[in-house]
Design a protein around this nucleic acid. Structure first.
Length: 269
DNA sequence: AATCATGTCAACCGCAGTGCG
DNA sequence: CCGCACTGCGGTTGACATGAT
């Protein structure tokens, strides 16, 4: 195989750097590809950990393995997915879920990474646009919390959509974990939520706040917590003592989160 | 032409599973 | 049974490409 030719298709990926152990990270050069391919052709794959050193590469074994499996391995099919392939992915995903390696095994010469990328960047959105929940592969039921519950990548599926506070938690978690929001933004979210929570929030206000949180209503992946998860959590905590009151889980958790989180934020600032 | 939004894809990280001493 | 090393997997990131405004 002409590794250099492969690289010539498109310059993509990350710039190179060295980690603390002196291991090279980031984009592979044609020379490195050639070294890896030549070594594997001659010696085969035995031990990824020691392979880089023996092949004269300043890479970690994990990086070499990934490069080989996703890029250099013979017979890999690259480029655009055909409509047939896309159909097959959707079908397999409905059966197997996010088990990309299992899906890749069913498809001809496509890597799990390739399939995963195509699903996340294209197919998932396409299904959503067509009113299909990409996780359950069922038609999306139109209700007020649908947006929050329909795009999980956690592999979990739920019979009901998360409630308002669960939505806030989910979106906040997504925002923090993806570093979408800076601390000011997060603080504003809480301050805003605290003010509005004392009023009778109509649906529009809630929606506006949610859109604020998720960065303008764009499609995002959330850590989904629904009321079942939340009540399970509540059972595990002392907060449960309040449960006997007329509070719903929703408002209880909401207040609890608001209180604890604003304390944390106050501490931070 | 410039800017912004979205798409694409290579490569990273962290975690879980497995095998072995 | 336990701890460690290694492998494999899934989720995520980041840089570049491309299209829209």
């Amino acid at each position: 195989m002409n590794a250099g030719g492969l690289l010539g298709l498109r310059k993509m990926g990350r710039k190179t750097w060295f980690n603390d152990d002196g291991m090279k990270k980031g984009e592979w050069t044609a020379e490195e590809d050639q070294k890896l391919v030549a070594y594997i052709h001659e010696h085969g794959i035995c031990d990824w950990r020691s392979l880089p050193q023996r092949a004269g590469l300043q890479r970690c074994g994990k990086s070499c393995r990934l490069r080989w499996l996703n890029y250099l391995r013979p017979g890999i099919k690259r480029g655009k997915f055909t409509p047939q392939e896309e159909e097959e992915i959707i079908k397999l995903h409905a059966d197997l879920g996010n088990r990309w390696a299992a899906i890749a095994k069913q498809m001809e010469n496509r890597t799990d990474n390739d399939i995963k990328n195509h699903w996340n960047s294209c197919l998932k959105k396409r299904l959503s646009r067509n009113g299909i929940d990409p996780m359950t592969h069922e038609p999306i039921v139109n209700n007020t919390n649908q947006e929050c519950g329909s795009s999980s990548t956690t592999g979990s599926t739920f019979s009901s959509s998360p409630s308002g506070s669960a939505c806030i938690l989910n979106k906040l978690a997504a925002g923090i974990s993806s570093r979408q929001h800076d601390l000011d933004t997060i603080k504003n979210i809480f301050l805003d939520a605290k003010i509005t929570s004392s009023d009778d929030q109509d649906e529009e206000q809630g929606l506006k706040r949610d859109q604020n949180i998720d960065g303008g209503g764009q499609e995002d992946d959330f850590l989904i917590l629904d009321d079942v998860d939340i009540s399970r959590y509540m059972q595990d905590t002392e907060e449960m003592e309040y449960e006997t009151t007329s509070y719903s889980y929703d408002s209880l958790l909401y207040d609890s989160v608001m209180s604890e989180s604003t304390d944390i934020l106050d501490h931070l600032f």
